Computed example of a mutant assay.
Amino acid sequence: MKMLLSKNVKMGRSATIYWDQVAEKPYIPQVPRYIQSTKITSTTIESPTILAGAIRGASIQGGTITSDTTIDVGTNLSVGKEITLQGTGNKTIWFSGMRGAITFDYQNDAFEIGSMNGLNVTGGRIYENGITVATTEYVDKHVVARFG
């Protein structure tokens, strides 16, 4: 026995409709099984992992950011304590359109500093193994080069 209901139907507290009795069921998306604990509200997404082509925001905060690709910083980079360049082989920091660079030569365990327009040494002294080898007064008056 079927009953056809259209408008103005009120059901009492003990009335029950079973899902298999609904003829034209609305589409209710299912959460994929691999999503275990994601919560989405009107202002936040909480999830242990979020995969996306792009994540944008005025402020992205967290404990660790890991990348196996290039990270492009469009304005300023502020580092609290240190920058560590991992692995072996030479490491280089390039400045403004490759007009200058600081390279750590891994094989010779030495820094190489290059510039299109020369090198200014500031700070008072040049040290080698903790021993002063030149002062700024000396460098101002002489060409300093050490080989060997």
Score class of each variant (00 low, 15 high):
132 T>R: 09
142 H>S: 15
125 R>Q: 12
119 L>I: 15
110 A>H: 12
117 N>K: 11
107 Q>I: 03
138 Y>C: 00
138 Y>I: 09
135 T>K: 12
129 N>Y: 14
121 V>H: 02
139 V>P: 05
116 M>L: 13
121 V>W: 06
125 R>E: 14
105 D>H: 12
106 Y>D: 14
115 S>V: 02
101 A>E: 08
106 Y>L: 02
104 F>H: 13
105 D>Q: 13
127 Y>I: 09
142 H>V: 04
139 V>Q: 06
134 A>L: 05
121 V>R: 07
125 R>F: 13
100 G>P: 14
106 Y>M: 04
139 V>R: 02
109 D>V: 10
132 T>N: 08
120 N>P: 00
107 Q>H: 03
99 R>G: 05
127 Y>F: 04
144 V>K: 10
114 G>I: 09
122 T>Q: 12
111 F>Y: 15
117 N>T: 11
121 V>D: 00
130 G>V: 15
126 I>D: 02
144 V>S: 09
141 K>S: 12
137 E>S: 14
114 G>D: 04
115 S>L: 11
121 V>G: 00
102 I>L: 07
102 I>P: 01
100 G>F: 03
110 A>L: 07
129 N>A: 14
142 H>A: 08
138 Y>L: 04
101 A>W: 10
121 V>E: 00
102 I>D: 00
108 N>T: 06
109 D>C: 07
122 T>N: 10
109 D>I: 08
133 V>C: 10
112 E>K: 14
141 K>R: 10
107 Q>S: 11
99 R>S: 15
103 T>A: 12
134 A>W: 08
129 N>S: 15
105 D>W: 06
114 G>C: 02
104 F>N: 05
120 N>R: 04
102 I>R: 02
107 Q>Y: 03
127 Y>E: 06
117 N>S: 13
143 V>M: 09
139 V>M: 14
138 Y>W: 02
142 H>K: 12
115 S>E: 11
115 S>M: 06
139 V>T: 12
139 V>E: 09
112 E>M: 07
115 S>D: 11
113 I>K: 00
132 T>M: 04
98 M>R: 07
98 M>C: 06
101 A>D: 01
102 I>M: 03
123 G>F: 10
118 G>N: 10
106 Y>K: 09
110 A>N: 09
108 N>Y: 10
118 G>S: 12
111 F>G: 00
113 I>N: 00
123 G>T: 07
117 N>G: 13
101 A>Y: 13
128 E>Y: 10
138 Y>A: 02
100 G>S: 03
105 D>G: 12
131 I>R: 15
128 E>L: 03
113 I>E: 04
114 G>Y: 01
141 K>M: 08
128 E>D: 13
138 Y>F: 14
128 E>T: 06
103 T>N: 09
99 R>A: 09
117 N>Q: 12
133 V>K: 15
140 D>W: 01
100 G>W: 05
129 N>K: 15
108 N>D: 12
110 A>I: 10
121 V>Y: 02
112 E>V: 15
107 Q>M: 03
118 G>D: 08
127 Y>N: 12
